[in-house]
Design a protein around this nucleic acid. Structure first.
Length: 352
DNA sequence: AATACGGGGTC
DNA sequence: GACCCAGTATT
């Protein structure tokens, strides 16, 4: 059974750049990028990061804001912050040598059981089985395990099954093959069982249970938020701030944001700005509604309206806002929602 | 044990 | 709209 899996892998594997290196730094880059991220989406980021950083020390010496800018659009931004933290930890405490054993990797920030096993096996052939979404699916179907893969006990059970299934001294190939099988053959919907090297040993195929495995108890919890972004223009400058912790997009920049107020028209925005003493009563403002976007995240839906406020007086904003030339906004890491706005060709003349 | 954390692709 | 992706940290 294992032999046919490895044969299948050798013939059918995709040619992915992180498979051509044993450098734990590059493997780390790829594995963090690919957390909860499809290969096609992560690939251009991997290329970009490996072009910018040759080793862990270069990464550690970079500015976090520059790393976030490279990460822009990929989501789960804590990954980038944790990578920077870990790179500096390795530079300062591990002599700049990237560890390649599971026990040393698992203690690093941003590296959990999956990533530690991946780096240790790919770079050092350590006998640690990876358990990601693909492996959950392959093993649940193969063995007929109906445990909820989202539960703690389920994770433990599957990680034991995965480790037991890793027999020989070929962890690197084995782990890659298991994930590739899940990605190319044993897909969530419409698995390609007739081309599967494990077909003859598969519980789900035998019992036509592919649709019922793996078990994932879903938890949906979605909230809706109402955003207003104010794009001020004063003397060819605008105002942005960096988002803080305990909310989405930590570390990314954005225009002044007002949440939970619905403005029906420009006049209501004007009254609000006067009332909050952003401007005094005599101020001459040109307020224009630009557009609204619905932006969908996994756990929340954002309804964002954008207002352009051209003013002849400086708006009185909190000290955490920085003044930047309006043309330099593109140097800052911003959420995808704002990137979509400022790169919208049709809206350029209204924004800038 | 449950929840927060992005963005994009697929059906 | 539901599901899910080379998961981890926090509560």
């Amino acid at each position: 059974m294992h032999k046919s899996l490895y044969n299948w892998y050798n013939i059918n594997k995709r040619d992915l750049p992180w498979r051509n290196t044993k450098d734990p730094f590059k493997i780390w880059l790829s594995e963090i990028i690919l957390q909860q991220t499809r290969v096609e989406q992560g690939l251009p980021y991997y290329i970009k990061f490996t072009q910018n950083f040759n080793n862990i020390n270069e990464f550690a010496n970079a500015n976090l804001n520059d790393i976030l800018k490279l990460w822009q659009g990929l989501g789960y931004y804590s990954r980038a912050r944790n990578m920077h933290y870990t790179a500096q930890f390795i530079r300062d405490n591990l002599n700049g040598v990237f560890p390649n054993s599971y026990s040393e990797l698992i203690i690093l920030k941003g590296i959990g059981p999956y990533t530690a096993a991946a780096i240790a096996s790919f770079s050092n052939n350590e006998k640690k089985a990876v358990v990601d979404g693909n492996v959950f699916r392959v093993l649940a179907r193969l063995t007929g395990t109906y445990t909820d893969t989202n539960s703690n006990s389920g994770k433990n059970e599957f990680s034991k099954i995965a480790q037991d299934f890793l027999l020989e001294n070929n962890a690197a190939i084995h782990n890659q093959a298991m994930m590739e099988l899940g990605a190319l053959i044993c897909k969530p919907l419409n698995p390609d069982c007739y081309n599967c090297p494990l077909q003859n040993n598969c519980f789900a195929f035998e019992n036509n249970e592919q649709k019922n495995l793996p078990i994932k108890i879903k938890k949906v919890k979605n909230k809706t938020r109402l955003f207003n972004y104010f794009i001020f223009e004063y003397n060819n400058t605008t105002y942005i701030t960096q988002r803080g912790p305990n909310d989405i997009w930590e570390g990314l920049f954005e225009f002044p944001l007002l949440e939970n107020i619905l403005f029906e028209n420009e006049n209501e925005v004007f009254n609000y700005l006067i009332e909050k003493k952003i401007f005094d009563k005599k101020a001459k403002l040109n307020i224009k509604f630009i557009t609204k976007y619905k932006h969908i995240l996994t756990h929340q839906t954002l309804n964002a309206s954008f207002w352009k406020i051209t003013c002849s007086l400086k708006p009185k904003l909190a000290a955490n806002y920085i003044e930047v030339p309006i043309s330099e906004i593109k140097k800052y890491a911003v959420p995808r929602l704002l990137e979509k706005l400022i790169t919208n060709d049709k809206l350029q003349h209204q924004i800038f």
